[in-house]
Design a protein around this nucleic acid. Structure first.
Length: 335
DNA sequence: AAATGAACCAACCGCATCGAT
DNA sequence: GATCGATGCGGTTGGTTCATT
């Protein structure tokens, strides 16, 4: 679908950092008229910028509902968890972090969290322990046994396929729901007021539902899953619940995520690896421990989702993770 | 105090997606 | 169904600030 070069190719348009005057003009215009059509906004507002640049400036910087400053430990946890679940879908992740923009989260991931995980010997893409983890990372002492334990516990591929399956099923359910009761027209203010979406998200609740429904029509389960992945917090909860339902936690093959997520979020990964290693080496107890960890992981996801649904802010950052089996809460989350 | 490198983050770029025609 | 315009999204860049030598 070829796209013509966008407006910034026009001559005379300014690029680069915004000046306070430009900010003021943009703010004043949006305050008075709303943004409406971004493409025509710059001319109306008296700005020599392209609409895209204005939209970005507004979305990432000028909006009054943006929280700036350091990320809290819980925000970090949420990002890591959701990244493990969603990958680089920053806007979907931002949906769960009120007042944070996708750009900010992305930057924070790239400059902080990714490095921390790498330092721990965990692949920030797969969230699995790296085979080639540098000495001094998670493998610094008793590394081999720990990685055996990690490998033993890591069945991410199975988890992933189960997750896709669950999401596909949920997509179908959502389609049915959407057909039964069409979502209200997009009304950002109303939606935000209802707490169904984060002010940082550019994807409205209703849009998500439509996306979900569209995804459900897809023959390809991955397509449906993809649509489902950007869905509301309810869907995440259902996905987790469906996964739990399909793969009872005691099943032999349903293992890894809990352990791994625990490691990711644990300030003392060393201890955790050691614990896992010990457990793995102590015959009999290992499977039970894995199961407990899985339960903990999924409980925490469910808690996260439930709390976000019940709280008007839809925040996952506070009460989100309550299961101590998963969260050995990092007082100073330096991995 | 100056030079250098690292870290940070706002903004850009280009592709994907959606809705209208 | 094809095309087009508008917008959203994620990857990347480059300027600025901070820390170290």
């Amino acid at each position: 679908m070829g796209r013509s070069p966008c407006c910034e190719k026009e001559a005379g348009l300014k690029k680069g950092p915004w000046t306070p005057e430009e900010d003021q003009k943009l703010l004043a215009f949006i305050d008075q008229h709303g943004h409406g059509c971004w493409r025509s906004l710059p001319a109306k507002a008296g700005l020599r910028r392209c609409g895209k640049s204005c939209r970005l400036r507004w979305t990432n910087y000028l909006r009054p509902d943006i929280k700036r400053g350091k990320f809290t430990v819980q925000e970090e946890q949420t990002i890591i968890q959701l990244h493990a679940l969603l990958g680089n879908r920053w806007s979907a992740i931002a949906t769960h972090l009120p007042k944070r923009t996708d750009n900010e989260i992305k930057n924070y991931w790239n400059t902080h969290l990714k490095k921390r995980l790498a330092k721990m010997g965990i692949d920030p893409v797969t969230h699995k322990p790296r085979a080639d983890a540098p000495a001094g990372a998670a493998s610094s002492s008793g590394g081999a046994a720990r990685y055996r334990a990690a490998a033993h516990l890591s069945h991410t591929a199975q988890w992933e396929s189960a997750r896709l399956e669950a999401e596909a099923r949920l997509a179908c359910e959502a389609k049915l729901r959407a057909l039964a009761s069409p979502p209200p027209p997009p009304a950002p203010a109303a939606a935000a007021a209802s707490g169904l979406e984060s002010p940082t998200s550019t994807l409205s609740f209703s849009e998500s539902a439509q996306l979900f429904a569209a995804g459900a029509g897809h023959d390809d389960a991955h397509g449906a899953a993809h649509a489902a992945a950007v869905l509301t917090t309810r869907s995440y909860g259902e996905a987790a619940a469906a996964f739990a339902e399909h793969h009872r936690f005691g099943d032999d093959d349903a293992a890894a995520p809990g352990f791994l997520a625990g490691v990711l979020l644990d300030c003392s990964a060393e201890q955790r690896f050691a614990a896992a290693s010990t457990a793995a080496e102590a015959s009999g107890g290992e499977r039970q421990q894995e199961e407990e960890e899985d339960k903990g992981y999924w409980s925490s996801i469910l808690n996260m989702v439930n709390s976000s649904m019940s709280s008007s802010s839809s925040s996952l950052t506070s009460e989100a993770v309550t299961d101590p089996a998963m969260m050995y809460l990092p007082a100073a989350a330096e991995f």
